[in-house]
Nucleic acid binder design. Sequence first.
RNA 1: GGUCCCAUCGUCUAGCUUGGCCUAGGACGGUGCCCUCUCAAGGCAUAAACACGGGUUCAAAUCCCGUUGGGACCA
Length: 470
Amino acid sequence: MNQVRVRFAPSPTGYLHIGGVRTALFNWLFARHEKGVFILRIEDTDRARSTPEAIQAILDGMKWVGLGWDEGPIYQTDCLAIYKEQADRLLAEGKAYLCYCTEEELDARRKEALARKELPKYDGRCRRRSGAAPAGVSPVTRFVSPQDGQTIVHDLIKGDVTFDNAQLDDLVIVRSNGVPTYNFGVVVDDARMAITHVIRGDDHLNNTPRQILLYRALGYEPPQFGHLSMILGMDKVKLSKRHGATSVLEYQEAGYLPEALTNYLVRLGWSHGDQEVFSSQEMIEKFSLENITRSPAAFNPEKLLWLNGHYLKTGDTKRVAELLLPFLRKRGVLDGGAQPDSAWLEKLVVALRERAQTLVEMADKAAPFFQESVIMDQEAAKKFLTAAVRPAFARLVAVLEQTSVFEHDALEQGFKSVLAETGLSMGKLAQPVRVALTGTTVSPGIFDVMALLGRERTLARLKKAIDLMG
RNA sequence: GGUCCCAUCGUCUAGCUUGGCCUAGGACGGUGCCCUCUCAAGGCAUAAACACGGGUUCAAAUCCCGUUGGGACCA
């Protein structure tokens, strides 16, 4: 069998959305699994709606999620001459014709047909037109579509889907301004790029019979098709902006890890037994078109969050620490130019990652470790920084001043000696200390907090708390 | 309106091809318990589904037909 060649072909009319990423991911996985080629093609023939910003957003999004392409990006607007050439060929072979019907005429006829309860398709009258071309009308090019028989799509995911050719009309392949229509551009490109498998959303399933007919008319063997079901929102309606973030880059900004997003997305419509967590290597090894579900899937943000938390916990600490930096800066936790000690930052990540599901959350929780002095939660202070614990605090300060290594185990030992002396339980002392050190009632383990803060800040904060006790 | 697609716990899904191993499994979320210096994380347990109606068959989540519901495309 020939080498697999697949493509992802977004229109740059907006950001790269989640559904698009999943389509791209499945194509990419298939290509990698089959040791084939993954091509990126930008379908920018809709010039009114395509923007350079959108193109950039697509490229950035693809890079962020780690879907590298082997060929491209190829822009359709660079290929206009090729579509024209192919359309001219069809014209010359009598497989296409020029149509001079105006928008108004077509509209009127459509309404008439509807009134007669007939199919409102083009009646093909310009097919039979003879004589001179009407003046002042720039024609569109229409494809001569067979009116009998059936076209069967042997879909890799949906199975065989049969369409009556009588349903299809003579579709426009080139507009009056010379720009190819979507269906024509796709076919010409997929054919000349020797695409072997077209894996795309099932919103294109209905276009497929027309495309197969076009392939044949152009003298190409159609590729294999695989139509993926759509991703829906939790309310079972097609995923859109009102469901929250739908652009990949929004997920980046919200503190998600790309591997969490791809892992989440791969399980939306595909499975490998009961396995939920896949490294990208595993995905490539195990991916197959046979295990794709036919039914549409609802996007569940909570499961994505869980996976993100999982990857935050299990990911390489050095990498997580690096990824965290921009979030610390953005949250104003860290000054723009400041560069924290990397070993220390990794320790902070280890302490925080059990309790954060996103990098944004982690950056928030990191705040007390960067501030010179704590921002005290007044209610917590009132409740925990009472005169009753002052003697214990005083003892703790004395002990900590003597502690030679300011690290977890030594700190625990010192802390516990204070408990033994004062007769306080762990909880009775740890919670006030937590408030004194972080300003809040929630934090990593208290010994980790002290170690992370270091001797100086720990002692300063404890002393300040003693003052607050009045 | 026409054409096409889809239908298992709230959600993602396994099982459906080749009916019996399904008193329907896993995961997220929920609930409860354990662990515990807080919050998490973790562990254990638990509730929760074969859309409906007909067939076929000794036997159907699995095969067939219909209904209903959802979605897409075209208009």
